[in-house]
């Protein structure tokens, strides 16, 4: 189901870059039930996963890597920065040239993203109105949108959505499950109000309210329209940087993972954790995130994610670079043994 339609894309998760590539290869391509999916031909993503023993001494020779300066500045945990710098050194060892590159509008991405995402989701969630429902049946599947523009950043809405049953239509129509809470009401207005008040969770309601506000008359120009303009600026700045560099790198988040519930009462801090990834989403680019080290003395010895960003439709290149990086980093420390075996 749709959360923020112009940003939604399937994120492929795997135990290794190769696994992720196999999954992506299986789902990539045009979907005739999704008018926004690309009709561009899908290259063979599976041809990049050579075994580590066959690598040359400088397997990424000549690759130009840009480290986004704004992602290693103030506000980013020191441990994260040092781990990313170490990853950059590893790229150099593999034969890459690594330089810092500036994307000045980077910090605008977070507010722009949340305005657009919440506006769209406030609209997408309108259909949970308590009007239609069918007999209960177990949840079958969630319909997702194959789209090879972005391979990164999957937003799992189930976590946000406190409805008891999710709905799926892939499969037998007659066994669709019920969605939308329904209540008794004397007035149509309260039928909607009560259904949604009871059926939606507090985070969802907060987002719907913010999105509705941003789209309201008198605020549209100040919020939604500005955010769209920012989106264009961000897209252009990424394009400029990717004209000079083959891939861009950054941390996946400004801190290592925080504890469950730690920022529950501080949604802004929680949203701020998305700063590294939402820009890529706004620009509509593919990205690959993989672990590159631990913060040994930090929070709890948790892994730090490295984000690699490629030009539009360059998923193949990202997978190739990511695979080599992963297989050569600390002797493949981050590759689960079973996967490492199968690659060899």
């Amino acid at each position: 189901m749709a959360y923020a339609s112009s940003l939604d894309a399937i994120g492929c998760f795997g135990s290794s870059v190769a696994d992720t590539g196999i999954l992506l290869h299986a789902i990539a391509g045009h979907d005739r039930f999704d008018a926004t999916s690309s009709k561009q031909e899908v290259p063979n993503f599976l041809s990049h996963f050579d075994s580590a023993s066959s690598f040359e001494s400088k397997p990424l020779k000549g690759l130009r890597v840009g480290l986004i300066r704004e992602t290693i500045e103030d506000g980013v945990e020191a441990g994260v920065v040092s781990t990313i710098r170490a990853a950059a050194s590893h790229f150099e060892e593999l034969g890459c040239t690594v330089n810092e590159v500036s994307l000045p509008p980077f910090s605008l991405g977070l507010p722009a993203y949340y305005i657009l995402a919440l506006s769209e989701s406030s609209s997408n969630l309108s259909r949970y109105d308590g009007i239609r429902s069918v007999a209960d049946s177990p949840c079958i599947l969630l319909s997702l949108r194959p789209n090879i523009h972005t391979t990164q950043h999957c937003f799992i809405l189930c976590a946000l959505f406190s409805l008891t049953n999710h709905f799926a239509w892939l499969g037998s129509i007659s066994s669709i499950s019920r969605y939308g809470n329904q209540v008794y009401a004397e007035e149509l207005g309260s039928l909607y109000g009560d259904s949604r008040a009871k059926g939606l969770g507090s985070e969802v309601k907060m987002r719907i309210l913010m999105g509705t506000y941003a789209l309201s008359a008198g605020y549209y120009d100040a919020y939604y329209k500005r955010a769209q303009q920012v989106r264009t600026i961000i897209r252009n700045s990424f394009k400029e940087a990717l004209d000079q560099y083959d891939i861009l790198i950054s941390p996946a988040a400004p801190s290592a993972a925080y504890k469950i519930g730690e920022k529950k009462n501080d949604p802004l801090a929680m949203y701020a954790g998305d700063i590294m990834t939402v820009n890529v989403n706004l620009a509509g680019l593919p990205a690959l995130v993989l672990p590159c080290g631990f913060i040994e003395n930090g929070t709890a010895g948790l892994p730090v994610g490295l984000q690699m960003i490629g030009a539009a439709f360059h998923e193949g290149e990202l997978l190739r670079v990511g695979h080599i990086f992963e297989q050569t980093l600390e002797n493949g420390r981050f590759v689960p043994p079973i996967v490492a075996d199968s690659v060899e």
Partner: peptide
């Protein structure tokens, strides 16, 4: 699903 506005269905 599309004209019923069911979740997951998209217009073409």
């Amino acid at each position: 699903p599309v004209c019923m506005g069911l979740p997951g269905a998209l217009p073409v």
